[in-house]
Design a protein around this nucleic acid. Sequence first.
DNA 1: ATATTCCCCTGGAAGC
DNA 2: TGCTTCCAGGGGAATA
Length: 277
Amino acid sequence: MPELPEVETICRCLRPHVVNKRITTVRTTVDRLRSHLDEPHLQAFCHGERVADVRRRGKHIIVELSQCKALLIHLGMTGAFRIRPQSAPFADHERVIWCLDDDTTWRFIDVRRFGDVRTSVLCAERDEPPELRDLGPEPLTEAFNASVLIAASRGRQRPIKNMIMDQRFVVGVGNIYATEALFRARVRPQRACRRIGPGTAERLVACIKQVLADAIEWGGTTISDFRSVDGTEGKFRLHLAAYGREGEPCPRCGDAATIRRCVQAGRSSFYCPQCQR
DNA sequence: ATATTCCCCTGGAAGC
DNA sequence: TGCTTCCAGGGGAATA
C-alpha cells in the first residue's frame, strides 16, 4: 500500500505524537507479522526508552530511541498507525501497542500482516541501520540522477518499470508512482531499461522526483486502505493520470487513445499505447 | 548473476 | 442473497 509519499506523510503525522515521549509498555496481539514478533524482547528493548526521532528511509520507518537503539517498521501493504487513549480497548487488526507516558498509546494496525516491526542497533546516532544497507539512493536527493539510471541499465534486459520499483536501484517507488512517473515521462513500462537514452533518462528521473513531490504535497494516495495517523486520506488519487484507468481515454491524447493494462512482475501496469513508447 | 513466479494474509468488489 | 473468484499499494524466497 504505502509508497514513499504515504510513508513520509505518516512519519510527519506521527512525529508530534511520539517524539520525546517515553515508552512504558509494549504489547503484541499476534505471534508474527512478516517476521516473528517477540513480545518480551520488544518490551525489554523499549521499556523506559524515550523516542528521540521518527524518520524515513525508503519505505522503512526508523524510530530512534536512545543509545543508538532503533525500531525498524515497515508498513507492508496495509500497515497504519493510530494514537488512541490508554483506556481504548484493542480494536481489530491492532498488532503492536506501545503505551506512552502521557496516557496515550501508539498502535500498529495491519490487516494483512505484511508489515514488520523489528529492533535494530545503529552504529552511530542518525546512522543507517545495517539491515537497510542494500537500499538504493533516496529519489528526492542529488544521489538519484540520470547517470545512476544509465549505469544501472547497462547490459540489463529487464523492463524499466521493474527497475524503478527495485529498492536496490532507488527506494520508495512502488506500483502507483512507477506507473505515474512512466506516464509523465512518456515511457512505456515494458521498455527494456538498456533502451533508455540519456535524454529519456533525464526526463524519467525528473518525473519520478516530481510525481513523488506532488504526492507528498497531497498527503499521499488513498485507493482503499491508506490513512495517515490522524485518519485523513491521501488526496493524490484525484491526480492519478494512468493508474487504475484501464479503458479510459488518455489524459494526454484524449479520445485518440485508451489506457491499457498489462501485468509485469505480477503487478498491474497502466499505460497509453500512443504517447508512451 | 539476472529475471520471473510464488507466497505470506485478509477483505472488498465483481461475477454468476 | 449467497457462493466463488479475482484483486490489492510490498518484499523476500524459491525457481528457471
